[in-house]
Write a protein that binds this DNA or RNA. Sequence first.
RNA 1: GCGGCUAUAGUUCAGUGGCAGAACGCCGCUCUGUGGCAGCGGAUGUCGUGGGUUCGAAACCCACUAGCCGCCCCA
Length: 430
Amino acid sequence: MSTLKAVRGTRDLLPPETDLWNRVEATARAVFARYGFGEIRTPIFEATELFARGVGEETDIVSKEMYTWEDRARAASEKAQSLTLRPENTAGVVRAYIEHKLGDTGNLQKLFYIGPQFRRERPQRGRYRQFWQIGVEVLGPVSSGAESPIRDAEVLEMLASLLDELGIRNWQLQLNSVGSSTDRPRYIAALREALAPVKHLMCEDNQRRAETNPLRVLDSKDPNDQELINNLPKIADFLDEASTAHFAQVREALDACGVPYTVNPRLVRGLDYYTRTTFEFTVPDGQGLGTQNALLGGGRYDGLSEMLGGPRAPGIGFAIGEDRLILTLQAQSAETTTTKLDAYIAPLGIPQNAAALALARELRRAGLSVEVGDGSFRVKKSFEAADKVARHIVLLGEDEVSTGILTVKTFATGEQVKVDKSTLASHLRT
RNA sequence: GCGGCUAUAGUUCAGUGGCAGAACGCCGCUCUGUGGCAGCGGAUGUCGUGGGUUCGAAACCCACUAGCCGCCCCA
């Protein structure tokens, strides 16, 4: 009989690492609140069709990475249907937007989510089969301003602030516009045409991409092909007037905010629904992520709602790879400081155990974090145990219980004082 | 999905065919109301799993599993 383990590509998150996860999520929630975002929680599985139509039948995510199963009908009134664990959250949010007629309020919807996503890829550092995303979506009817470039710039500026507040250093914003849903096909056609005479000079991978997905040739890292790639048509030359102006206004607003960015005409993204503004935040190599250097990605999806049978509802959003964010934070901070409890209460004999727990109850109710030892421990053992988890040790022997004057030692300073029970809580806070 | 590297104590790792090891950590004692230092002692374990070669396998071979690296792709 083999022992049971977390399945491939999944993992347990344990303390103290979970403290970091909670800090990241709390910071994200606080920042989102300042920008007027509200939380949305959508189901972890959806109809397979949602992702096929939303993310795109031809994408790798849909064609080979989804956890899909046939959900059997359990009664004559039920019908069997194909269900899928969500590989991303944007399609689910837009589905909810349509289903609850959020557009009918006329208001701009600013939504955020935090939750697990599932893709059946080969696991690697920073790439898991169950991974966590922190994302936001801004969408609504055109009259709500959902299409405005100021929405794009606001989202990007918020991300820059969030990463700064989290303490991520050296992030870079890569920015591009992939144009409208009519610009893109024209560009892809031109790309195919330009690739036809030169692709035989390129590496094997790029020859294949030239056939299957010409946009992907653009982010090839093959050093020999760089010159050929640089000579390919640029998407910027295929944007219609409206998309060009839109992109210019996004950049202008970012400049005004002082958010640094690099326009990267070769930035392409793998999901079919992206239009106009697309972006990635990356960190340099060697800062925890290996080759998965994209911390987060996102873009505008002006046609997604219609693709899913909904009303016109342009929008923009992003998803942060929370696992990657955590890896980067761990790599960038030399020391992971574990937060210590306020106090450790050490009963000096078994008769003091009950009093120790009663004292702990009082202190905990006063808002302090407290651990309680055991009267059977030797004093030395109590000190050692206390020093590992707490900033102060409170000694509770016969004398202390009878007089209410407690002995408190502070580990950082080695200072030991007698403290009356009535002032204990305030003393321990220091 | 493809290619490569790796898997030994809680952790980091050494051990290339002959008794399962080191450091750190852990537990105990020196030391029954004052720890961190020191001394002494102790436990670390299915050597990833299964099979094979051999008198003998942690080591060599095969398969599997997992992790990491690269590709693909993406967050």
